[in-house]
Structures are given as structure tokens and as C-alpha cells.
Amino acid sequence: MDEIKDRLLKPSKATHEDQRGKFISYLSIGLIAVLVISILVFITIHGLAMFTQNGMKISDFLFKTDWNPGKKLIGALPMIVTSFGVTLLSALIATPFAIAVALFMTEFAPKRGAKFLQVIIELLVGIPSVIYGLIGLAIVVPAVRTIYGGTGFGILAGAIVLFVMVLPTITSLTVDSLKAVPRHYRQASLALGATRWQTIYKVILRAATPGILTAVVFGMARAFGEALAVQMVIGNAAMLPQNLTSPSATLTSQLTMGIGNTIMGTLPNNALWSLALLLLIMSLVFNLVVKLIARKGRIK
């Protein structure tokens, strides 16, 4: 009897397995947490060095427009404006296209069409930034130059290149969130006599809004952090953009260009790390804002 009692009271094999499994998944998430924290701490320490060690003012960094760290000018406002400009503009262009393609793939598509589009979109993710940059240089910049005048380098050219680059990211994540809308939502709506568009607009898109917003954030994040491609078409002039076609510089392009030419621990190098920190904080803000929108937009 005791044996049976023991067996019944002891955790079963499945329980052990369950615990082990839980442990693995907790370990993984813990590992990611460690990675994130280590890189955040790393960038924060380096990024603050300019203010703590070199005694620069944060207000100068955020609001002044002259950037030449070699001469102690650290106004990053032009880059902040430009980074926001290209990111918002590219997301603005890309989102409707991405949603249209995603809807086509989930709601309209003949199966084959969806599969085909998916392969192509996945292909696009793998094209290196450098190639986007080169094509931008060969096609987009001259086109912008012919149509709008100026040199062709600038926010517009950057946004067009980024539009193509973030399209796959936004589209594939949007597809995921559309697919996650339960089928009975659709069936219920159609059963009520709604047209396909009404179903899409009033039910599916509403239900998928948080997911779509996340997709857009991911896309914007990619646009925000993209360096090599933008760098080739933006012109890299650390000046406040006069218009969409005047040469300007993003946080990333300035960072990538300068980092190899500066000496660790000096002001010019620290200034670049501050740009990186700024980049990090801004993507954090992006995230939070969208989280808020998503919370409001959630269907009850």
C-alpha cells in the first residue's frame, strides 16, 4: 500500500518534464533579458560619457543645430529631425501598401497568389542594405533630381528606399496578425449580411489593429536603425533639412560614417555613442506610444 501511496504522492514523470520544460523556457527568456540589459547598460554608459566626462550639456545636444564634435559643437537636432522625417514618411507610404498586400494574401488571395507573394517578400528581406543603397543611388536619386530638382539626395530619396526595405517586415507581420483573427469573426459578420469589405473594415481590421500597429512599429524600428542604405542616398550633411530634397543626415548615417574614424574615449567618439543612446531612447518612446494606441484601440 505504501508503495502506491508513495507513487501517488510523488510528482509524476510528466510533472518533472513539465517543470524541466518550464525551466528551459524561463531560462531562455532570462537569457534574452540578460542580453537586452547588457546592451542597454553598455550603450547607456558610453552614451552618457559625453555629458559626464566631457562636460557637454544635454540641452545643447538636443536643441542646437551645429554638429562638429571635433570642435566641441554637438547639436544633434538636424539628425533627430531627419531620422524622424525619413522614418515617419517611409512608414506612412509603406503601411497602406502593406495592409493591402496582407489583406490580399489573407482575405482575397487565391492560395497560389499568397504563397507566391510570400516567397517574394521573404526574398526582399534578404537583400543586403548595400544593394538597396546602390539601387537607390542608381535609380531613386536621379529620379528625384529630375522631378523635384536639387541634388536628389535627401529625406525623400531616403524614405523611398526605406519604403521598399520596411515593406516586407510590415507586410509579413500584418499577415500574421490578420491570420490570428479567429475565423468565426468572419463567418459571423458574413452571416449578418455584411459585404467582404465591411467585414474587413469593421471586423477584421479592428480585431487586428494592435497586431498591425506592432507591425508598423517593427517596420519603423527597422527604418530608424537602418544605416548603410540610407547613408548612400541621404547626402550626409549635418544640416537641418530645408525641404524633402535637401541633403541631410540621420542619426545612423552619422554614426556609421564617424565611428571608424574616431578614437575611443575622445569627445567625437563619445558624441557618436550619445547618438546611439538617443536612437535607443527614441525607439523606446515609439514603442510606448504605440502600446498606448493599441490599448485604446483594442476591441472590448
Binding site: T151, Q231, G235, N236, P247, M257, G260
Partner: peptide, 8 residues
């Protein structure tokens, strides 16, 4: 130098 475009 005048403020201008830069490439690396």
C-alpha cells in the same frame, strides 16, 4: 570647410 554632403 563649408558644410556639405559627406561620404565615407
Amino acid at each position: 570647410a563649408v558644410k556639405s554632403q559627406e561620404q565615407d
